[in-house]
Design a protein around this nucleic acid. Structure first.
Lengths: 115, 115
DNA sequence: AAGCGATATGTTTGTGTTGACACAACCTTT
DNA sequence: AAAGGTTGTGTCAACACAAACATATCGCTT
C-alpha cells in the first residue's frame, strides 16, 4: 500500500438512462480494427478472435444502439468488405478521447491519494 | 449520441506492477459490509450472497494482497465475528476516495466531450 | 453437556459466456 | 461455371464463475 508500485486500471462504458449498456472498450476496439483492416474477418484475425464471435458482438451493439455501425458488402473482388458508418467513426473517436482524458486524470488522482 | 441521455460508467481496480489484479469495487464492497455488520455471515446476507461465496473471495484477496484483511474469531458469545485490520480500513477508505474523485471528473469530461 | 451462531472448507450443481465447427448466400474474377 | 474470400447464422462443446449443499470446528452461554 505504501510503495508506489500500484497501477490503477479502469474500464469505462456508456449507458443510456435506463441503465442499459451501450458500448465500451471492447466494442470500440473491434470497430477500430474493422476500420483499419476493412473487413470483419481480417479484423477478427488481427485481434486473435474468431469471425463468428466478432460478428455476434457487432450484432449486439447494433441492436442496442439502434443504428447500423457498418456498411457491409458481400461478394465482389475481394470477397466482401465492411466499413464504418460516420456515426460509428464519431463513436470511436469520442470514446477514445474520453478514455484517454480520463486515464490521465486517473493517474494524477491515484498519485495524490496513494502518496 | 447527440442527446445528453448518456451516462458514463466506470469500474476501477488496482494492480501491482506485474499486472496482477489486487482488488476493486467488489472486494471493497465486501469489506465495507463486514465492517458494518461485524461478521462475514451477516455481511454476506446483507449483500444477498452466500457465506461460502464471500469467504472464497476474501481468501483470494488475502492471498493476492499478502496481508490479512480480517481478524476472525470463531465461537464466543455471538458465535464469532470478523473485524477489519487497520490496513483493510485504509484500503477501503482510499479506494472510495479515489473512486468518488474519479467519478466526478468522469462526468465533467464526459459532458465536455458529448456536447 | 447441549445448543447456538459464526468461521472454515470440500463437493456438487447450475448458468452464462466464449470458441470451434459447419454450412449457406453472395459477387467478382478467371 | 468453378473458385475464392467474405458476410450471415445455427449449433454444440468447453470453460469459468456463481450458487447451493453438506459438514466440521470452535467457544461462550445456559
Amino acid at each position: 500500500m505504501e510503495k508506489q508500485n500500484l497501477k490503477i486500471r479502469m474500464r469505462i462504458w456508456l449507458e443510456c438512462e435506463t441503465g442499459e449498456t451501450l458500448f465500451g472498450e471492447g466494442q470500440i476496439t473491434i470497430l477500430e480494427a474493422i476500420e483499419k483492416k476493412g473487413s470483419i474477418n481480417a479484423a477478427a484475425k488481427s485481434l486473435g478472435m474468431g469471425y463468428r464471435s466478432m460478428w455476434g458482438r457487432l450484432k449486439k451493439i447494433e441492436q442496442r444502439i439502434g443504428t447500423p455501425l457498418l456498411i457491409r458488402r458481400k461478394g465482389g473482388i475481394s470477397g466482401g468488405e465492411s466499413v464504418l458508418t460516420p456515426e460509428a467513426k464519431r463513436m470511436v473517436e469520442k470514446f477514445r478521447q474520453l478514455q484517454q482524458n480520463l486515464h490521465e486524470t486517473a493517474e494524477k488522482i491515484c498519485f495524490n491519494i496513494f502518496s
